[in-house]
């Protein structure tokens, strides 16, 4: 965090009108993405994926397979990009790191007692330290939603700032779990707190709560990022996660990103999709674009 950034009073953050933001979000879906724009968008979306497995039943074998998929998305189409990162629990960071080697695919680890965040601060610190020490390039922390809803914004702020320190060089993604916050006004407030506290990314959801990412909630966060950028000159990255499994929807998100933050954000340093099944749908659409023939899932590997 730059020392010259003035921390605002979080009891007064920008307000959001629900009907207006949803109208605006649906307007992006009216864009018709064709031909080369579509192909570029599909490839870009593929390259923005945080390929994710976050299950109690995750094993070394599962994570290794996922890492192979991350590096070799579809062998029938040489020259495809890789995904951006593989996202796992801290216990699997070492496995993933080794499997991905020097492929350039990053390892992201959830932490801070993901997904609920209901643990003592020391546990969250240790959780994060463990992931970082095992080689995580990125940390996906959760905010304390309970404290946030109690109005203890300083607690939430301090916790994010603390985890940021522990991250060191790892980039910090702050998960707001928007599905538990209830209103867009609170999503906006949580976004502001996260960014001012040092988040490199703000992220919608854990994927464990419904609703997860939606276009309007992502738009609220993108607009928060834009306002933060206007004020401080500092770019913050965005990661919608959960619920984005279709190529068409991913393209809508990219249209939205492009029209809210512009082309400087149109790469995987500044935007990610947290998703598990999106990759194959993108691949099917890419092959359709390439061959002109509608595809079957039987021809795309499920790892």
């Amino acid at each position: 965090m730059k020392p010259n950034i003035k921390i605002p009073d979080f009891s007064h953050t920008a307000v959001v009108d629900q009907v207006g933001i949803e109208e605006r979000a649906s307007r992006f879906t009216k864009r018709s993405i064709k031909n080369e724009t579509k192909m570029n968008g599909l490839l870009l979306a593929l390259n923005m994926i945080d390929l994710t497995t976050l299950e109690g039943k995750d094993t070394v074998g599962k994570v290794k397979q996922l890492c192979t998929k991350a590096m070799h998305l579809h062998k029938a189409y040489p020259g495809l990009p890789t995904v951006a990162a593989v996202c796992v629990y801290p216990s699997m960071v070492g496995v993933a790191k080794k499997a991905l080697g020097d492929s350039g695919v990053k390892v992201a680890s959830v932490s801070t007692a993901f997904p609920s965040g209901q643990a003592p601060t020391q546990v969250k610190i240790d959780d994060t330290k463990y992931a970082v020490e095992n080689g995580a390039d990125e940390i996906d922390m959760v905010i304390s939603r309970g404290k946030f809803l109690q109005g203890e914004y300083n607690f939430v702020f301090d916790e994010i700032a603390l985890i940021k320190e522990i991250c060191g060089d790892a980039r910090l993604k702050v998960i707001l779990e928007t599905g538990e916050l209830g209103t867009y006004d609170r999503v906006r407030k949580a976004s502001d707190i996260a960014m001012y506290a040092g988040a490199d990314f703000i992220k919608t959801s854990t994927g464990k709560i419904s609703p997860a990412a939606t276009m309007p909630v992502t738009l609220v966060m993108l607009e928060a990022i834009r306002d933060f950028y206007y004020k401080t000159g500092k770019k913050i990255a965005m990661k919608p996660a959960g619920g984005i499994s279709k190529a068409k929807l991913a393209l809508h998100y990219l249209v939205m990103l492009n029209e809210v933050l512009g082309e400087d954000w149109m790469n995987n340093e500044w935007f990610r999709f947290g998703a598990s099944s999106l990759a194959n749908d993108l691949l099917m659409q890419i092959m359709k674009q390439k061959t002109g023939i509608y595809q079957s899932s039987n021809y795309f590997s499920i790892d």
């Binding site: 993405i33 031909n35 724009t37 933050l261 082309e263």
Partner: peptide, 17 residues
């Protein structure tokens, strides 16, 4: 100048008549 957002790519979409 330093903070300008760029939208050329947002406008340059393939034709969709």
């Amino acid at each position: 100048n330093t903070l300008k957002l760029k939208f050329d790519s947002a406008r340059n979409l393939a034709p969709a008549p």
